[in-house]
Amino acid sequence: MRLKFIEERIAKILMSLASLLVILFVVSILYTILKRGMPALNWDMATKIPEGGYYNGGGGGVLNAIMGSLFIVLGSTILGLLISIPVVFYMNVYLSKTSKLAYISRLAFDVMFGIPSIVYGAFAFSIMIYLGMRTSLGGGILVITLLVIPIFIRSMDEVAQHLPKDLLDASYSLGATKLETIKVVLLQIAPGIATATLLSVGRAIGDAAGVMFTAGFTDSIPTSLSAPAATLPLSVFFQLSSPSASVQDRAYASALILTIIVLIISVLGRLVTTYFSKNKI
């Protein structure tokens, strides 16, 4: 009889420790990045592109990579939304719950969700070679779009599957066609769309393996879709492989910038999600 209470005690301690460990990891990662990134972080890092000899300790910053990353995230998010909203709408409003096509699509998007970005990158690169394309901003955007589509679709679908039948009926009984019901559906799943965007922006900005071969790397800010584009994760990676300690320090600073951007996005996302929930039934 006593034994089970002792067991309960031990279990509780272990569980608390495990949870503490999770928090410890977060603190440790943030603290490490902050501690090593802070000394090399200065205004130039975020506002200047690399000057000559940057990778040997010359002046400048990583604005090229920041802008490249933002362009890629913006492009892929817009493309991703344009593709995934109709798909989610089709799966949930036009197809019935037991439809074979809906089942197969969900499975396919699950698989796509699992495909590593390096595989997308390699696949896209070999197609680009085949087409004679060079590494470019456009190529990077396309690969990241492939990467975020399943994230968009899966997390929006999660919400859309719980659309109240009454809501659709209410719209239909006013004489709306299924297409015209999209406004109602979009407003209802708006918080889901916001969450999905948040998730995919996070994934898109942090991805390095996918853009490695497709977007390339450059010291200037891309001016067209066919120009190569640097990205922040790759910039961290390349600076880190430099033998010079001062360049490595700047890698840590760049990692700090990346982390700050990700955290800002996540906080903003939370606010936006709350805002979009206001009309929800």
Binding site: S28, I33, I205, A208, P233, A251, L258, T259, L263
Partner: peptide, 25 residues
């Protein structure tokens, strides 16, 4: 209230930052 945001941050940290943390720590 403490662990869920921590998990969100953990999930959101880019893999290259994990790499940097790995190298440093």
């Amino acid at each position: 209230k403490w662990i869920f945001p921590a998990l969100d941050i953990l999930a959101g940290i880019p893999s290259v930052v994990y790499g940097v943390w790995g190298i440093l720590l």
